[in-house]
Write a protein that binds this DNA or RNA. Structure first.
Lengths: 223, 223
DNA sequence: TTCCTATTGTGATTTAATTCACAGTGAAAT
DNA sequence: ATTTCACTGTGAATTAAATCACAATAGGAA
């Protein structure tokens, strides 16, 4: 038991990867309550999935459960870190130090989850050189250099829409492969790069849609 | 053509609903460029889906395309509003006026998309009564009353984890059925209510995972 | 008008995701 | 030591999602 790494040549579902984060959030809360072991049934109830799905998700990466005692809470949490690659700290940089950008700089949760906000950038020359939430704000001119020097792996985008695509292209050329984008604008990334969208309006629209539907008119909603 | 409303008794996929928001973002940009008609091929390329999927998604709600001219950009944008229910303004309220909450209060995008931030609440008595980004901050004591008076339909959660579940339960009892949650904490909502999670760490973890994988080891990634 | 081309909408098919259901098993009870 | 019980991990079955492929056809060209 407990060997990590995918079995055989099966592809890994991204739905499964997303649920890993969900499971881990629940595991952290159980850990705070000093609970050592948890069964698939309970963890599934906490996260709004079926027990079968939880077991299937975990089985993608090996077998971790102690039969009849369940899963070791702290161990599985650590295992998920290893799977997603946050057992080593990943450096982030932020583009755009507006209201949202400053809120992100103040957010404590990154460090707890294995991410470190190493730098911030802004196109506004008045902001370059200033310090926000304890972090120096660089000029966009320094993007490539700072990315290389600080070994930035993920770029968080919270700028105005104007320079967005340009920032992506330059960062990608400088070696950044991952982008987390808060800006409601159509973008594209080069081959081999990944961009994840956080679209608040889209979420609100989904809620708006749901609130008008009869329960049995939509496919299953996770709770 | 052009009748809205689902056909027959088929259930609507939430994946489809999520993509509607994506399509509309692209349609807005096309509209700004004064483009009147767009083919499925182009709109699909802009949004990173296949043309077949785009047509299938739209077909869920009727048929809107003019064969050989494509889709009317402005009309389809308006149609999507009608489908998701933002052709009429939806009132939001915000719980938690910390860094993130204030950033959300300053965000202009809500109004453009048919949402109005009608009120804000905070558990901190020092914040109650003050004004943030032009909006009065209420005490949590007033939650039920303000929700009813202002006809709040969606509650945005950006508070500390402590009072979170309590805020949900009270708002639900006061008639709110939709929640948008930024707080990294396990929650539950009563039957008939919906909660959407915005989990920044989860997105970062997904990116971290992706950046370590060979391209052909994961199932399709949208770009 | 008639023909040609390129596009939509959709049955049929394929692929992916989820759930079912149970064999095998480890721990606890007796 | 033996029995009992409830759990995990996983083949099989089911359900959902995405893609294929093409008939029908609107618009433009000749």
């Amino acid at each position: 038991m407990a060997s990590i790494g995918t079995k055989r040549d099966a592809k890994i579902s991204l739905n499964t990867v997303e649920r890993l984060s969900l499971y881990r959030r629940a595991l952290e809360e159980l850990s705070h309550e000093k609970i050592q072991y948890v069964h698939s049934h309970r963890l599934a109830a906490l996260t709004g999935v079926t027990p079968a799905q939880l077991r299937r998700d975990l089985a993608t990466f090996g077998s971790f459960g102690n039969i009849s005692r369940g899963y070791d809470v702290r161990q599985m949490s650590a295992t998920i870190s290893r799977i997603v690659g946050t057992d080593e700290v990943q450096n982030l940089a932020l583009v755009g130090v507006g209201h949202l950008g400053r809120a992100l700089l103040s957010y404590k949760g990154f460090e707890e989850r294995g991410f470190h906000v190493a730098a911030a950038f802004d196109a506004d020359p008045d902001k370059a050189g200033r310090v926000f939430a304890g972090r120096r704000c660089y000029s966009m001119d320094d993007l490539e250099e700072v990315i290389s020097t600080l070994n930035v792996r993920i770029l968080v985008l919270a700028s105005h829409p104007q320079g967005l695509q340009d920032a992506i292209d330059r960062a990608a050329a400088a070696g950044v492969r991952c982008f987390l984008n808060f800006v409601p604008k159509i973008t594209s990334v080069p081959d081999g790069c990944f961009i994840e969208q956080i679209d608040i309006s889209a979420k609100l629209e989904k809620l708006s849609f749901l609130s008008r539907q009869k329960v049995d008119q939509v496919s299953a909603v996770r709770r």
